[in-house]
Amino acid sequence: MNGNSTTTTGTLRVKTGLAEMLKGGVIMDVVSAEQAKIAEDAGAVAVMALERVPADIRAAGGVARMADPTVVEQVIKAVSIPVMAKCRIGHFVEAQVLQSLGVDYIDESEVLTPADEEHHVNKWDFAVPFVCGCRNLGEALRRIAEGAAMVRTKGEPGTGNVVEAVRHMRTVTDQIAWVAGLREEQLFAAAKDLEAPYELVKWVHDNGRLPVVNFSAGGIATPADAALMMQLGCDGVFVGSGIFKSGDPAKRAKAIVEATTHYQDADIIAKVSRNLGEAMVGINISDIPESERMQERGW
């Protein structure tokens, strides 16, 4: 047998590999051990441990920070599925704390108030993998260059309005198709336009996809919303406020899980969409002042 010498942890392949295992699944925001159990029982592939869901962060205003470690630890104890948690953009010490707590993925998230308006966390410094938000291909590739092992389109968190999630997913897929169709000599200018490293632009050109898994986030509230994002080409969905701000979280969570698996089967989506109770109250994006739009955070 082989000795220890070939055994390595924290490699890019085990970081991106966990994201591969989450594909086709639903990652749910939770603020307590009880909610985490409901999410796990409904078939969530992972939970995001938070102190407040985005809708409440939006309502509360002020500075939003990493959750209290107690909340994160309670969620870790409560469930056997992977646990994610959010740090502020650029706040590498919050990230160090989350790694020390044993979270399985860190979301460097625009839902929290950014700690650095120029730099994101250097994610290569960590053994724990990171997921980051993006609105377009350039932003996705910049995050990947910094070491993100998974990306998610941002949408507009805490709104229950899927329109921004759709916009961002369509932008990413359109730009991938554009890059894939370019001639080799055009890739240098494309890298400049996208403000992304040439090597990653070349990779997208050669492979016709992103080098990491891409989920959809920010505004998904119904089973049909989840299936819409899957049909638009995402690998899985994050549901934030949409579940625990609704009338019957357990039932809605299970329905969104089933719609994500059977996203091409309208009969099943119709069946699971019945009698889910009150959906979360949505917000029109035009009613949110530009300065309060979370998607604008990150650079």
Partner: peptide
């Protein structure tokens, strides 16, 4: 046994016969 090695930070690669 599920999650036998621990959490994600314990995930690893190794050569196998």
């Amino acid at each position: 046994r599920r999650n036998a090695y621990g959490r994600q930070i314990d995930s690893f690669e190794a050569d196998l016969d």
